[in-house]
């Protein structure tokens, strides 16, 4: 089976690259400047570029902010906008806890610079429920007990919303494979698959 041959590392690499690519967008020149600075720490001046104006559209609301270019989307959400539903698990694009939707695609917010999300629509776990009604994926996670500690859960849920939109729910094996960028250390995987299946209408 072809799917079974995808190793965990290859999967992570494959899932991380689109996340970075999705994040680059308009921010290419600035991103390069930061990347160069980071690669040669000992010779850069003692302070980095100062704060720049950025407008982020998060869950349908525009936020005019001033942030240093090196601030990730994840830290902008959590530390500046107070949207702490998006979690920091590794800050290295390896665990998926920070998964958000950018223009409908799932990306790792820790690998996306906030300035690179300008002009895009960012959806976090806080933006999924509407009119006090849980999103079907949220309701299914509750029903199937698809979490324990809850820390990977917002990322799992955003990832599942993206997965369903991608049409990757044709079999349990496919759900498992394409949810494998989101680590759950509590080990709720079989319940996560049941929840995603139910939410996708295959229950």
């Amino acid at each position: 089976m072809a799917l079974g041959k995808v190793t965990r590392r290859r999967f992570l690499v494959r899932s991380a690259i689109p996340a970075i690519a999705a994040g680059i967008g308009i921010g290419v020149p600035r991103l390069n400047a930061v990347a160069q600075a980071a690669s040669s720490v000992s010779i850069v001046p003692a302070s980095g570029p100062g704060a720049v104006p950025v407008t982020l559209n998060v869950n349908g609301t525009e936020h005019a902010m001033r942030i240093e270019p090196r601030v990730t989307l994840l830290d902008a959400l959590r530390e500046q906008l107070g949207l702490t539903g998006t979690k920091k698990g590794c800050d290295q694009g390896q665990c998926g806890a920070c998964t958000v939707l950018v223009d409908g695609r799932r990306v790792n917010a820790c690998l996306t610079l906030a300035i690179a999300a300008e002009g895009k629509k960012v959806t976090t776990v806080e933006g999924l429920a509407s009119d006090g009604k849980l999103h079907p994926v949220q309701a299914a996670f509750l029903e199937y007990d698809a979490f324990q500690c809850g820390y990977c859960t917002p990322g799992q849920i955003c990832s599942a919303v993206g997965l369903i939109a991608e049409g990757r729910t044709r079999s349990d094996a496919e759900i498992r494979e394409f949810m494998s960028g989101n680590i759950c250390r509590c080990g709720a995987y079989t319940n996560i698959v049941a929840a995603v299946k139910a939410a996708a209408g295959h229950a």
Binding site: C90, Q92, C95, E177, T190
Partner: peptide, 17 residues
């Protein structure tokens, strides 16, 4: 010392329990 190189199960590793 990372979740890339210290392996823990991902969803694809746990088919049915």
């Amino acid at each position: 010392a990372s979740l890339e190189n210290y392996l823990v199960p991902v969803n694809a590793d746990i088919p049915s329990i």
